[in-house]
Write a protein that binds this DNA or RNA. Structure first.
Lengths: 96, 96
DNA sequence: CTCATAGTTCGATAATATTAAAACTATAAA
DNA sequence: TTTATAGTTTTAATATTATCGAACTATGAG
């Protein structure tokens, strides 16, 4: 079945692709600036796009390891995954 | 004529797109590790692709502001543009 | 049970990115 | 002057990405 394990550069490529979009940069900035975790809806309200598109952006960030998600009843809360930023992009969040 | 000036995030997107490719990450690593500047040919030898494709990757990096180029006779020398890395991705080169 | 809310998935489409071959430009060497 | 070298541009094929609407899942409220 040829299980392919990713090398570090494949992770880097996925991370950079995830960050190579203005909407997703804005989402990252909102999360960085928020003291608490934010719901998908709260973020979606600040990003003028269809909810399916916003959901797609969340998935892209999550699959790149840049965010984590917690579900509480109907609401999903998103927050940044700091280990990933620190490991692959140290200093970036401060410069954003 | 509607001259559009880029905001910072547009630059960031262009930079992240430029880095979101394994071949270009490898080029950046070669340049970082080299004490001297490298010619396009020297880099091309280490990257198994057609010369037109390699040239396209150089252009992508250059247009994102990640490299500069100097021409000497027939040869073009490439080197990293450290200001860009320091401004938009401080700490990244060390982590690569 | 029915309805509303929060979010995801699917299918289609348009825009962008990657790749290579072929033709091209500029320069050096014979 | 002819030929070889270093690199770019053009063209075309293919693959990937961003977007939206519609249908879907899960949960809470009345």
């Amino acid at each position: 079945m040829n299980i392919k394990l990713k090398n570090e550069d494949e992770f880097r490529v996925q991370i950079f692709k995830a960050l190579a979009d203005e909407t997703r940069l804005e989402i990252v900035r909102l999360l960085r600036d928020s003291k608490k975790e934010l719901s998908c809806g709260e973020i979606g309200d600040r990003v003028d796009m269809s909810k399916s598109t916003v959901s797609y952006h969340f998935k892209t960030l999550r699959e790149a390891g840049l965010t984590t998600t917690r579900k509480d009843a109907r609401t999903k809360y998103v927050q940044l995954r700091m280990e990933t930023f620190e490991h692959y992009l140290p200093g970036f969040l401060d410069s954003l």
